[in-house]
Design a protein around this nucleic acid. Structure first.
Lengths: 167, 167
DNA sequence: CTGAACTTTCAATAATTATTGAAAGTTTAT
DNA sequence: ATAAACTTTCAATAATTATTGAAAGTTCAG
């Protein structure tokens, strides 16, 4: 497999995996492209590589910046804006996990908590609703906590190693 | 909050969370309905409760059965088919994790492996592609393995200590 | 201040995905 | 074998989501 083929395959596969981490195709593809690029890319370059419109590129870059995984790089003397993504996979995973937790999981946990806290009127169906949503609530909370612990643990480890390097 | 309100809230919230585990709205809503039902439901009942068509109900029930989280219940003397879902959240999580791993994560890991195995021609861009896809491959593999370990409750010292950290 | 270089916005449109409903298919009782 | 009871299929349609592109907005050099 040649470079170009491997590159295209990577971008389209990673792009289609977007759903797995809750982002759209264009967003995922832009991130992929930046992830394997050896230097920051301009909007023009991204548009050309992925064959998407200026507007699309602009909006998706903004979303990626909202997610905290893409940053603007200002190159001295250049008018254009350049973009690059977090290159460290651990750090990338941390950002993604944190954002997904905040945007999607936490709000659902809140609803599960509310629903499982309704008054038990003694009927079978109410009891079942309470019981099952409570179980789901506990599971969701554990899973969310675990995910955050794992990714933050990684962060601690990285920070520790970094500190060692500095000393 | 009354029973009916709580029930509707649960079904629509859990339904909209469908994307999180990679299924569509109707599928997620049917599963939710069954999850809090005190008895197996017929197609008619599901259609009426969720206000969806017969065809839609049929197709989504089939998909839920493919996922292994809904089963047909044959009630003696009844012509109609009844459906129920796995009621144990741990078991449910296990099934979902296993299916997602098989359908989505494993194939992506395979592509990452192929892409990261291309011949190093010495150019910077090829080296970057290899380096980054390899890092992603390792991360994906670790995450997948860990998820399976956790849901399969194969509690080695690693997962045990992780669980302790959370509690 | 003006114009060139660049980015953002957003209404229109395209692409994708979900849903319907009626015809075809299946099963069972008689 | 027939008909009633029920389920599945799938072409048509609706709903949703993504994408475009041109106008409006911004920034900056001269």
């Amino acid at each position: 497999m040649e470079y170009q083929e491997a590159k295209d395959k990577f971008i389209s596969t990673w792009g289609s995996l977007g759903t797995l981490w809750g982002i759209n195709k264009a967003m995922a593809q832009i991130q992929s492209l930046l992830f394997i690029s050896t230097k920051p890319l301009s909007m023009e370059e991204i548009m050309a590589e992925l064959k998407i419109s200026r507007g699309n590129t602009s909006m998706n870059l903004r979303q990626l910046m909202d997610w905290g995984i893409v940053t603007k790089e200002l190159i001295p003397g250049e008018r254009k804006e350049y973009f690059s993504t977090e290159k460290d996979v651990q750090e990338l995973a941390r950002h993604i996990a944190k954002e997904r937790s905040r945007r999607e999981i936490k709000p659902v946990i809140k609803v599960l908590k509310d629903v499982s806290s309704i008054k038990d009127d003694g009927t079978e169906k109410t009891r079942e609703l309470i019981k099952q949503t409570k179980a789901l609530h506990d599971l969701a909370e554990t899973a969310d906590a675990m995910m955050n612990k794992i990714v933050n643990q990684e962060q601690t480890w990285i920070t520790k190693s970094l500190l060692k390097l500095i000393k």
